[in-house]
Simulated scan of single mutants.
Amino acid sequence: MSRELYDLVTGLAADSPWLVQALFEVGTNGAILALMALAAVLLWRARTDRLVVASVLLTAVATAVAYLLSELLKVLVAQDRPCRDSTVALETCPPVGDWSFPSNHTVIATTIAVGLLTLSRRHPGTAALALLLGAFAGFSRVFVGVHYPHDVLAGIALGTVVALAVVLPFRVLAAERVTRYSRSSR
C-alpha cells in the first residue's frame, strides 16, 4: 500500500507546476531550517521564562538523540529508497547505502515540532506553526520522491516518542537548573 501511495503522490508531483515542485524541493530542507529558527526566536523572546528555555534546550537534545536513533534504524533495516525504481522523483536519488527507513528529515522536523508543541499553552501560535512545518517536511519527502509514506510515518513516530520522552519528564528539573545557572553567572 505504501508503494501505491508513493506512486500517487509522486505522480501528482510530476504533474504539478514547476513553482509547486520548486517549493517542495526547497521546502524539504527549508522546513527544518524554519523550525530551528522558530525555536531560536522563541528561546530569545521567552528567555526570562525558565520553563520555555528548558523546553527548547531539551528539544535540541531530543533532536540529536532522535537523529542518532534514526541513523541506527537505517542501518538495521537497510531499506532501499523508492527513487531507485522510480522515474518521477523530483530530487536526485541519494547514493546506494543511504537508506530510506525512517526519514531523517521527518524525524528531525517532528522532534522539533513536538518539542515546541509541549509549550502550546504558553505559545499556541508557535506550536501550531511548528506542527504545520513538521507536517510539510514529512510530506515533502514523499512528494520529491525520496521516501515511502511508511518511512515518513516511522519518522513521525520516532520523533514524537523521543521528544515527549526527553522534554516532558525533564523540563521542570531543567528549568530549575537554568535558574541556578542564570543566578550563578551574574
Rank of each mutant, 00 (worst) to 15 (best):
P124F: 15
V162S: 01
P102D: 01
A13G: 11
S103D: 14
L23N: 03
A175M: 08
T63A: 05
W44H: 02
F101R: 06
S70M: 05
R186N: 13
E71D: 09
A163W: 00
L164T: 10
A13R: 13
V75C: 10
L42V: 04
L119P: 02
P124L: 11
F139M: 08
D15W: 13
G134L: 00
V161I: 06
H105E: 10
F143N: 04
L43H: 00
E25N: 11
P169C: 06
E4F: 13
R84P: 10
V167Y: 05
A54K: 03
L117N: 10
A14L: 13
H105S: 09
V178M: 08
R122S: 13
L38R: 02
A22C: 12
L116N: 00
V167G: 09
V41A: 01
V52L: 10
V161F: 07
V77T: 05
R186H: 13
L76Q: 14
L35R: 00
T160I: 02
A60W: 08
D85M: 12
T92C: 05
Q79G: 12
V146H: 05
L117E: 14
H147C: 04
A62V: 01
H147I: 00
L164A: 07
V20H: 08
V142H: 05
A39H: 13
A89T: 00
P82R: 05
D15E: 10
P124A: 11
V167M: 09
A54Q: 05
P94R: 00
A165N: 14
Y6A: 06
E91Y: 11
A39V: 11
A40W: 08
A14W: 12
G115A: 04
F24P: 11
R84M: 14
R171M: 04
S55D: 00
T106Y: 05
L133A: 03
G155Q: 04
V107W: 01
V56G: 02
H147G: 03
A174G: 05
A54R: 02
L19R: 12
L117G: 14
P94I: 01
V178I: 10
R3I: 15
H105L: 14
D49H: 14
S185N: 13
A163G: 05
P149G: 03
E25G: 10
V26W: 15
I108D: 10
K74T: 04
C83A: 13
T126Y: 14
T160N: 05
E91A: 12
A128N: 06
S182Q: 15
R81G: 06
Y6P: 02
F101E: 09
V65A: 00
L43E: 00
S2I: 15
V96C: 09
F101K: 09
V114T: 02
R45A: 13
M1R: 08
L73Y: 03
L129S: 06
A157P: 02
A89Q: 06
L42R: 11
L8A: 13
A40F: 05
P102R: 03
T179A: 12
